[in-house]
Design a protein around this nucleic acid. Structure first.
Lengths: 216, 216
DNA sequence: ACCTGAACACCGTTCAAGT
DNA sequence: ACCTGAACACCGTTCAAGT
């Protein structure tokens, strides 16, 4: 039950030439398309290559195997997610804890909701992809951002920030994922938003070592 | 992106004869074995049949396709999970809300921890299995049990019990799943237990419409 | 009646042959 | 140098032939 070594999962050639970059982009786009229209287990290399307008052989020049292809697609979207989440964190730096909580929850949901179908498609292949590195790396980045932000709260102090950040993020992920699997209807998303706010507020409130009214 | 109709996922013949029952059991056992030793995507029908000591043809008499096989295995374990969870719920009926919270969290974790490797194996194939029926059915059962139990709390009342139960369960699932994907080391499980208690307590505390000291 | 396993269609991956 | 697609190994599924 070993997981594939990360190095073998990256594209074979860095697309320095414009032509190559275009090809890779086409393959990316084709992958998402096939994923969305044909569904998870109908994602075949032949189908992707055909939709991208290249031969299988060419595709294998850029991605040494199917896992590498899926890895690249997932990686791309997770990177976007992390970047936007970190940006949102900076925006609430040093604010009161309640604002921070609101910021974290809203950012998390907003990013997922922006492209609902891509989000759902990615949830599917993210599990078929058995590289822990990507999962763990993303988790670590989000956790770090979260720790710093919570640590900057001007009216609360926490012990065990790593544990708290981990719990907060994985709890949000679990609920959000469930909502997406249930179809992510607008009303359901709204209720998720409300409940997540309560969940995180209650948790951080009970976990705060000290709360002061420095400012209002 | 349609999901397979549930009816086609059930075993073809109900094993009325002892022989058949034994065969089905052997296939079940073989599936789990292959899953644990060979890993997720090396779970092939040939391999399972071989390990179970039957021909592929015979296996296809009991399970019309691979999905049906995986469905059956996942179904079996989810049923056990639901049963044990419901039993644990009954055990805390009518208690104070803090005890109930403790009961829910501990039950949830205990059941998952009892067979850690099976739990992890099931997380893997549970996603490859694209039948919403099983997922939703399980979620519904757990939610119902949770709603009743929370409603029975002798010292707290809640509005939106369905939403609260949903959030509680999916949050627990998200965090627990993450811990299992990280290897579920004992210390990590312990920290999960502590944090989950805080998470659920804080959430229920903030969501309670009314709290009274009826008893102590 | 029930079991078997060769046979078929399809998928991931390769590599000799083309340009 | 780079692309192509027939060819290979393997997997899910079937069904004619055995008992």
């Amino acid at each position: 039950m070993k997981t594939t070594h990360p190095e073998t999962l990256r594209p074979r050639k860095t697309p320095t030439q414009a032509r190559s970059a275009a090809t890779v982009d086409a393959i990316f786009e084709a992958t998402i398309q096939v994923l969305l229209t044909d569904g998870g287990h109908r994602l075949t290399t032949t189908r992707v290559a055909e939709k991208a307008g290249v031969s299988v052989g060419t595709m294998y020049q850029y991605f040494p195997h199917k896992q590498a292809l899926m890895y690249a697609v997932v990686h791309q979207h997770l990177t976007i997610f992390v970047d936007e989440f970190e940006a949102a964190c900076f925006r609430h730096w040093n604010e009161p804890i309640d604002n921070i909580t609101q910021g974290i929850v809203t950012a998390f949901l907003d990013i997922k909701i922006r492209h609902p179908d891509v989000t759902r498609a990615l949830y599917k292949i993210a599990d078929e992809l058995d590289t822990d590195e990507l999962r763990f790396g993303t988790a670590k980045s989000l956790q770090t951002a979260c720790i710093s932000l919570l640590g900057s709260a001007r009216d609360a102090t926490f012990e065990n920030l790593p544990e708290i950040a981990f719990t907060l993020l994985t709890a949000m992920n679990g609920t959000t994922r469930a909502v997406f699997e249930f179809g992510a209807e607008p009303e359901m998303v709204e209720m998720l938003h409300i409940q997540l706010l309560a969940l995180c507020r209650g948790y951080l409130h009970i976990s705060a070592v000290q709360r002061s009214n420095v400012s209002h």
